[in-house]
Design a protein around this nucleic acid. Structure first.
Length: 785
DNA sequence: GGCCAGTGTCTTTTT
DNA sequence: GACACTGGCC
């Protein structure tokens, strides 16, 4: 996603001037200039939100090159692909054609391991296992160890292994430390499973995400000559978001910055939000101790947000004890106060957002892409998605199942993986019976045991299946045919990844299973496979002769969920608070400011106050994404795990003072009575009558009077927006499964309101609950999707 | 071996 | 509410 650069005096330059000369730093503030002009030696840039950090880094790179540094000696490392892409394109704008390497940690390590991985037992064509693959391996390990998978869920064991790896504990070290442990059963299981897991990865010639880093750490530690070479090769190392580095990443960065200590790290301890993934906020806090000659530059002027937003965020974050105090200042013009809106339930919360956004766009104040909706957990996006669908608001979601993780896409990719790396056991197991070829559990159990006993890869074993004494004829035929198909694909030369993928589909008949089907799901699957093909074609086009299967697979396995966000297309963006890091939007909504969500219940269970501080930082990150307007919401009632529960306001709300806005219904009924399920909720149309009697809402934040009601806010939009329950007889609607239809009748009230629709298909009539059905009005609004 | 329906179980955040 | 796993049936 493009990061919009705020308009501000210090940073503007005349369009007529063209690009600034990178040596000319007149357009920078004093501290920005200090950071840009610093050349040799370690440098710590403490950059508050919206302080022009990316701009400073890219300008600094440009300046280094301008002063004679070879671009190949510069390595810039980010956490996400999106950030890397953004930085690379900005560097390219300043230095067209220069080949500065901007990479994520994982990609950097992957490249290194492709070249030098033999040292840790990896062939250059190793596979990268994602979390699903990882779980598959662990499941097999646990079965082999006779460990009850119910009591020790593979995902939990996997998390423990991942934690260990993030703390640089190898399997051997872990085993030694915990194999005798009587106290903790899980650790004892991991002590056995972790070494086995690593063995299986090696047999598959594969690594998991953590291994990418850990193997590189091992390599650098065991091979001083290699470390020295790389240190010399990358004389200038820049690391973004240093506050989020874990121990492994810290070691890598340091190993590359011993002989030439031109290490520049940027970050903000207040934005450290990956502690759960092993990030050590201490890494940035102790930088000056690690590098005593370090220069320190603070970027504290904010060019992004209004003073109101900044002050609110600052009030919040100042409640953290474990931090380096920092001031946030801005010259930006005043804006509106930060609002807190309290709604009756999560559905209403979603509708309020939809109505608000639509209203702003229709008044011409904003474009769709100005808005972002942020939440703590992905599950919360559903309600918003549904409401936006009903209100016909175009949106994109940065979450849920990333494209490359959908089952059918993973299946096709598993074929490619197996072709690339025939030892990849997870890929084999995934596709050997997909589409169904009559190869079941029993057959596979025999085959894999046999392969392990004889040192075959699974694919080799399948090819030799006829030699196996116990396999049924039918199973043997299927296995041999499968192995032959794959082997032929391995041996054929293809011109590009797209051609190979097409051949895979043609030879395996994979897509045929849903061809000709009319089911919505099957069509979606076909479309996804088609989209994957498009991705391969784009990849071929982009890389030309350099387009290799290797590179394509690496891209797909390291692709992140926010990578595909697009701010050009004119859509509202829905994303988690974590995914929001590094982005900015004119208008930000943060929903569900409730106990157990923000802060998340997991952070409250343990008694570690630092976990709570991380939650506070997370909210801080979200708030400081907002440029002009920030709205926080909470609902009395929220559906969690299918149950509707009364919520408790987030304790953070008392730490700053948003302007309180309550939903009219709730004000009228009173908070104390919300629990009464039998209370019939009035229809939307009657909401206005409560406005006058509305009494101030519960004042979590210190007694501010309620100034506006949500009903008033909704009021102006009532006419232009079709409320979801507003189905009228004769209206045209669309149902995702049944297609177009006409509303025949509307019955019942409130939650029990039903709509009967006659579909185009003659004699087909269905009745739906208005609140829940996926019906969309058709042809009423000019805007939208 | 494949398919279906029913049941039990978990859900933070991500490369 | 979603998914993984189970058990029963063809």
């Amino acid at each position: 996603m493009q990061i919009r650069w705020p308009r501000c005096r210090a940073l503007t330059y005349d369009a007529g001037m063209g690009l600034p000369n990178e040596s000319n730093t007149d357009d920078l503030t004093l501290s920005q200039r200090q950071a840009v002009e610093h050349k040799e030696g370690p440098l710590l840039i403490l950059a508050g939100p919206g302080s022009g950090k990316t701009r400073v880094i890219t300008r600094r790179i440009a300046r280094l090159v301008d002063s004679g540094v070879d671009p190949r000696e510069i390595l810039a490392i980010t956490f996400t692909n999106k950030a890397a892409k953004e930085m690379a394109s900005r560097v390219d704008r300043l230095l067209p054609g220069s080949r500065v390497w901007v990479s994520t940690f994982h990609r950097f390590c992957s490249r290194l391991l492709r070249m030098r991985g033999q040292a840790v037992g990896l062939q250059p064509n190793f596979s990268i296992f994602d979390t699903q693959d990882q779980r598959g391996v662990i499941k097999r390990v646990l079965t082999g160890l006779n460990v009850d998978a119910v009591h020790y869920p593979p995902a939990k064991i996997g998390a423990l292994i991942s934690n260990a790896k993030n703390n640089l504990q190898t399997a051997e070290a872990y085993r030694r430390r915990f194999s005798e442990s009587v106290g903790n059963h899980a650790q004892a299981v991991v002590a056995k499973a972790y070494p086995e897991y690593q063995k299986l990865l090696l047999v598959s010639n594969a690594v998991d995400f953590d291994d990418l880093l850990l193997h590189v750490v091992t390599m650098l530690a065991e091979n001083p000559e290699l470390r020295r070479q790389l240190d010399e090769r990358y004389r200038y190392v820049l690391v973004d978001e240093y506050q989020d580095t874990n121990l492994a990443q810290y070691q890598i960065v340091n190993a590359l910055s011993q002989d030439s200590q031109n290490l520049c790290v940027t970050g903000d301890p207040d934005q450290s939000i990956y502690g759960w993934r092993g990030a050590k906020i201490d890494n940035i806090l102790r930088f000056e101790a690690d590098y005593p000659q370090a220069a320190v530059v603070r970027l504290e002027e904010n060019f992004r947000s209004t003073p109101q937003i900044l002050e609110t965020a600052d009030n919040l974050i100042s409640h953290n004890v474990y931090r380096k105090a920092k001031t946030l200042i801005t010259d930006n013009a005043d804006g509106d106060p930060v609002e807190l809106r309290t709604l009756r339930d999560s559905q209403r919360e979603a509708e309020m957002l939809a109505a608000d956004i639509r209203d702003c766009v229709e008044r011409g104040e904003n474009k769709w892409s100005d808005f972002a909706v942020m939440y703590r957990v992905n599950a919360l996006s559903r309600e918003i998605e549904r409401a936006f669908g009903r209100f016909r608001i175009p949106f994109q979601v940065a979450a849920g199942l990333a494209f490359y993780e959908r089952a059918e896409v993973k299946d096709v990719l598993a074929h490619l993986r197996l072709i690339h790396n025939p030892h990849d056991q997870e890929a084999f197991l995934r596709i050997v019976n997909r589409p169904a070829r009559g190869i079941g559990k029993t057959t596979l159990k025999r085959l894999t045991a046999w392969a392990a006993a004889n040192g075959f890869s699974f694919l080799e074993a399948a090819a030799q299946a006829a030699e196996h004494p116990q396999l049924t004829k039918r199973a043997v035929n299927s296995l041999v045919a499968f192995a032959e198909t794959m082997n032929e694909l391995v041996q054929t030369q293809f011109d590009g990844v797209a051609e190979l993928t097409e051949a895979v589909l043609a030879r395996t008949g994979y897509a045929e299973q849903w061809r000709g089907s009319t089911g919505e799901q099957d069509l979606q699957r076909l479309a996804n496979v088609e989209e994957l093909l498009t991705a391969t074609r784009q990849f071929d086009d982009q890389w030309g002769d350099e387009s290799t299967l290797d590179a394509f697979l690496e891209t797909t396995s390291l692709a992140g969920e926010t990578d595909n966000l697009d701010d050009e297309r004119g859509q509202v963006t829905l994303l988690t608070l974590h995914a929001a890091k590094g982005l900015e939007f004119p208008v930000v909504f943060i929903i569900a400011l409730e106990q157990n969500l923000i802060p998340h219940e997991r952070s409250l269970k343990g008694d570690d106050p630092r976990e709570l501080e991380e939650e506070r930082r997370l909210l801080f990150v979200g708030m400081t994404r907002a440029m002009r307007r920030l709205v926080l919401t909470r609902a009395h009632r929220r559906d969690v795990r299918g149950k509707s529960l009364i919520s408790i306001p987030s304790p953070f709300l008392v730490e700053f003072s948003p302007q309180q806005v309550a939903d009219a219904d709730d004000a009228a009924f009173g908070w104390d009575r919300v629990e009464n399920e039998s209370q019939e909720v009035p229809d939307d149309e009657s909401a206005e009558q409560f406005v006058e009697t509305a009494r101030p809402a519960v004042n979590e934040a210190g007694g501010r009077p309620m100034l506006t009601t949500a009903a008033e806010l909704l009021n102006g939009t009532r006419r232009s927006v079709e409320m979801p329950v507003g189905f009228t007889v004769g209206m045209s609607v669309r149902h995702p499964r049944y297609g177009l239809g006409t509303v025949m009748s509307v019955d019942g009230f409130s939650k029990r309101r039903t709509v009967t629709v006659a579909f185009e298909d003659p004699d087909h009539q269905e009745t739906f609950v208005a609140d829940k059905c996926p019906l969309q009005p058709v042809g009423l609004s000019k805007g939208g999707g």
